[in-house]
Design a protein around this nucleic acid. Sequence first.
DNA 1: TGCGAATATGTCCGTTCCGACATATGTTTG
DNA 2: CAAACATATGTCGGAACGGACATATTCGCA
Lengths: 106, 106
Amino acid sequence: MKIEKRRRLEAAGWRVGEARDFLELTPGEAEFVEIKLALARRVRELREEKEWSQAEFARLVGSSQSRVAKMEAADPTVSVDLLVRSLLAAGANRRELGRIVGSTRR
Amino acid sequence: MKIEKRRRLEAAGWRVGEARDFLELTPGEAEFVEIKLALARRVRELREEKEWSQAEFARLVGSSQSRVAKMEAADPTVSVDLLVRSLLAAGANRRELGRIVGSTRR
DNA sequence: TGCGAATATGTCCGTTCCGACATATGTTTG
DNA sequence: CAAACATATGTCGGAACGGACATATTCGCA
């Protein structure tokens, strides 16, 4: 299935390299994946800065430990909405989100 | 229902004023709504810049006219994912998305 | 005013996403 | 080592979201 394949690429991108390196993604789709990866990285960073466990973070943002693990792994079942809402709930603001979304740096 | 109420506030925010002015939204939730509104505005702007009808825009991004109308209206059933994916498909890039997300200006 | 195009609104139903739970794997500390 | 804690992975039932369609409303223009 096509969607499944994309999901595997997406998940693999976290470990292996730049998402855009994988075929069958339009530039827009590749950028979308990279945005998700950037948000996921920031979730982990922010949580570790504050020295929260995933369970604590989950409680804070109204989610569950397993879903936080999936957020940080940029699991395909995690939406940008959830990442953004979680970051906001954890104290990030619009400006910071803008930096995360917009910065090409890694 | 709580979610329904929030949805009404959210929809009303588009017409009436700043989302944060409505009660029962945490700061994070209010910022989330404002991000959605900013993305929705940009969809309309971008589409009108290019002089596309909603139907044309829908075809371009792989959606439908009615859903594009809902995107531009920041309808509660429209996710940030959809807005971001549509903007990317319509030619926006990460940097521009970052500006949209991060800018407090209206 | 009336007609056609564009946009808005409501609904349907299949797909995706989410919190929760169970459980596995990994890490720290006594 | 072993217990306690943290993180990862898989699954499930219900909620949210999406494209599509029908239809209403608004808009432009002759």
